[in-house]
Amino acid sequence: MRVLSRELGPRDITVNALSPGFTDTDLLPERDRAVAAEMSPFGRVGRPEDVADVVVFLASDEGRWVTGQNIGAGGGVF
């Protein structure tokens, strides 16, 4: 991310990665949902829109100063 952000920065292009945590999708097995929810300070797994909101921010003008980062969107689970 950092190398590519330096390459594309002069063209005002930001480069970031997003690392979502446990998210309520078909990829999260039912047997793991309760344990995943307990790991988060919010007491739940993420919803797809929770992760999408971070993507929207990074793609918006408000995210223009964020580049070269790996953003964790995992509801406090590390």
Rank of each mutant, 00 (worst) to 15 (best):
A36E: 09
D12L: 13
A52V: 10
N70H: 13
D24R: 10
A73S: 14
V35N: 13
E62H: 06
T67S: 12
P29K: 14
S60H: 13
G46W: 07
G68P: 05
G72Y: 06
M1L: 09
R11K: 11
T14V: 04
S60D: 06
I13C: 04
R6L: 02
V45A: 08
V3F: 08
A52G: 07
F57I: 03
T67F: 01
P41N: 14
G43F: 11
S60P: 08
A37Y: 05
R2Y: 09
N16A: 02
T14C: 10
V66N: 02
L8R: 04
G75V: 08
T23C: 13
D50F: 09
L58G: 03
D61L: 06
P10N: 05
P48Q: 08
L28Q: 12
F22S: 14
D61N: 11
M39E: 12
R11W: 02
G68A: 02
G63L: 05
F57H: 07
E62F: 03
V66H: 02
T25Y: 04
T67K: 01
F57V: 06
G72P: 07
P29I: 09
W65R: 05
P10A: 08
E7M: 02
R31L: 03
R44A: 11
E38S: 15
Q69Y: 00
V3S: 15
G74H: 09
R31S: 13
R33N: 05
R6Y: 01
P41H: 12
L18I: 15
G75L: 12
E7F: 00
T25W: 02
D61Q: 07
G72T: 09
D50E: 07
G68H: 01
A59F: 03
N16V: 01
A34Y: 13
L8Q: 11
D53Q: 10
R47E: 14
G75D: 11
D53M: 04
M39A: 15
L18M: 11
V3N: 08
S40F: 12
D50V: 09
I13A: 01
D24M: 08
A36N: 02
D50H: 02
R2K: 13
G68N: 01
L58F: 12
